[in-house]
Write a protein that binds this DNA or RNA. Structure first.
Lengths: 235, 235
DNA sequence: AAGTGGTCTAGACCACGGA
DNA sequence: CCGTGGTCTAGACCACTTC
């Protein structure tokens, strides 16, 4: 018998192989169901998977077409810094640098979409791989959303890890860029000022409430982000 | 009536709201089906969506649990450079720098997983935004996989655009990093040597055959990669 | 109006894997 | 063993959108 996965793969091959060209109209579910000797539901499931991975577009009555758009998606996995390091067989160390309640700069406030001028929790810390500074974490935490953070010293566990363990989030925004080491970056990462660094800025929300905004700075030489992407592999 | 999307959202709320904590066992499909007054299939569909977005883990007999593993996926969209620039209202310009058949350096060969020592097509080109160099494209194209490339001069259309239009691919690997401008980068991007750049290296395959490997270099100041991610949003 | 995808039900069998 | 998820069928109704 043909499972929806079989059908998915067959259809995938037809697209990859060029049998169904970009923009082409694909047979209807009913036709394919007849062809494969199964129910329309089964075909539907295979096609939904293809649509989810962005290879086809479906519209009622208009039918299903192979996409023409020239964008593809790439997926990367967000891990704990600690796991990232340990997974490569490195030794991880964490160091708290400072922890205070402060009013954030305008830029952070804007990024998090905050309206009032409440103080946030500002935690700066450092992550080491094999004894060398690997990542500087400069983080702002909303005390309105994450009230528990007020009681957490962050001296033994990084905000990164604590938040990920304690606080769910629903939305995230990432910005990746190359930049020059700022004075603080240079000091803690043992770099000359202006040397290249890889910066990740991440803001997360729980529903509409901002949770945290963080700036993660890595020495350019010791950091790379890798993705491996396959068509048809859903998230 | 309750649709699978309703159920999906209800379950999502229970996870987000902390009613079902990380690691907790979720009721069985049969129980939930009774609770919502629908078929098990409908519940199954809602749960599959949650599993796809990585919020729950399901195992036969063991049941379904809210994940504890704290990795999440982020998705970014890969566009044509031209579209990227035009979408921001910028003016795009393309310039071919060189085009030749050469044996690639060992590093490129390894990245593409090539065994022989065939020559590849080596195309270097430059993409401008509003008159300023935006991206240097240093690309190797497999002439075995992409025989048509031999006849394409790439003087009017960039390899980036040509490949995306002509050649399907099935797998891709991306590496993102910050780096120092190499001599060639500095020359074409109007940078001082050693200044920070943002580098993307992409290799793509069609089934198991390598298609192309490219190194895309951007001045650090004018490039950022942004993602916006929501739970439950499949690819 | 009619064709196409979206979804549900009721019932069934199977595959996996924990106890 | 047996509970849980994985999947299929047959039939049905609905929702959308183009013709």
């Amino acid at each position: 018998m043909r499972s929806y996965k079989d059908i998915h793969n067959i259809l995938l091959d037809r697209i990859k192989g060029g049998e169904w060209e970009p923009g082409a109209l694909v047979p209807s579910e009913a036709d394919l169901a007849r062809e494969f000797g199964c129910t329309r539901v089964t075909v539907n499931r295979a096609m939904q998977a293809l649509a989810d991975s962005g290879l086809i577009e479906r519209r009622r009555k208009a039918g299903t077409r192979v996409v023409q758009r020239m964008t593809r998606n790439a997926v990367f996995e967000i891990q704990l810094v600690r796991h990232e390091i340990e997974q490569r067989g490195g030794t991880y160390k964490y160091l708290l640098i400072s922890r205070s309640e402060e009013k954030p700069p305008q830029k952070v406030r804007a990024e998090m979409g905050l309206s009032g001028d409440n103080a946030l929790l500002h935690v700066i810390s450092l992550h080491f791989a094999d004894g060398a500074p690997y990542q500087l974490e400069d983080r702002w935490i909303s005390l309105d959303t994450v009230t528990q953070a007020r009681r957490e010293p962050f001296d033994a566990i990084s905000p990164n890890e604590w938040l990920l363990r304690e606080i769910p989030y629903t939305n995230a925004e990432h910005v990746f860029r190359a930049s020059r080491a700022e004075p603080m970056d240079a000091e803690f990462l043992n770099l000359g000022e202006g040397e290249p660094v890889f910066v990740i800025e991440r803001t997360t929300w729980l529903s509409d409430a901002a949770v945290t905004h963080v700036r993660l700075v890595h020495p350019a030489d010791s950091f790379r982000l890798v993705t491996r992407d396959q068509h048809g592999t859903a998230l």
